[in-house]
Amino acid sequence: MKLLKKLPRRALLFSCLALVVAGILGAAEKQPQSVQVSIGTILAGNQSDDFDVKLKGMESQLKVLKYRSYRLLKNESQNVPWRGAKVFEIPGDRSLTVTPQEFQDNRISMKVRLTQKQKPVLDTTVKIPNKGNFILGGPPHEGGVLVLSISAAAQ
């Protein structure tokens, strides 16, 4: 009988605890410290049918593009603070500047600027799912084209 009397109090306590945990988890998701940005630089071409085994994880994404061969030239990761910019060197005297803007609804918004020989080639603002990526391609390189896989994960 006493156990039954204590049940509502215990339930109330559990509710408060659950709310606190939910609040902490919610707050934790909204306040990541920085963003781990990774740039995979891939050379796509039609001279051969070679597919780099290191690119196996993104084979389905690369199939979207109509090239026969894909080779990973470089993979670079950097921790970038919010609103801070980091420059990634890209083959062919190019560079990619990534500036994470905000984290909302488990998505990362970031500005991306591609330059070649100090001249801007492309400026874009993209919102990608946390731990997701998008592809930026087209710059010519060594008889093929560069395909950049730009991914970001909130830390």
Binding site: K63, V64, T125, V126, G132
Partner: peptide, 28 residues
């Protein structure tokens, strides 16, 4: 991934969203 703005400084640019692999491609 959703593209909110894009400026290709006069170059042609194509945008693709592919359902199967959930891929967004910006192509110069």
């Amino acid at each position: 991934a959703t593209v909110e703005s894009i400026d290709s400084y006069g170059r042609n640019v194509a945008l693709l969203r592919e359902d199967g692999s959930k891929t967004t491609v910006i192509w110069l």
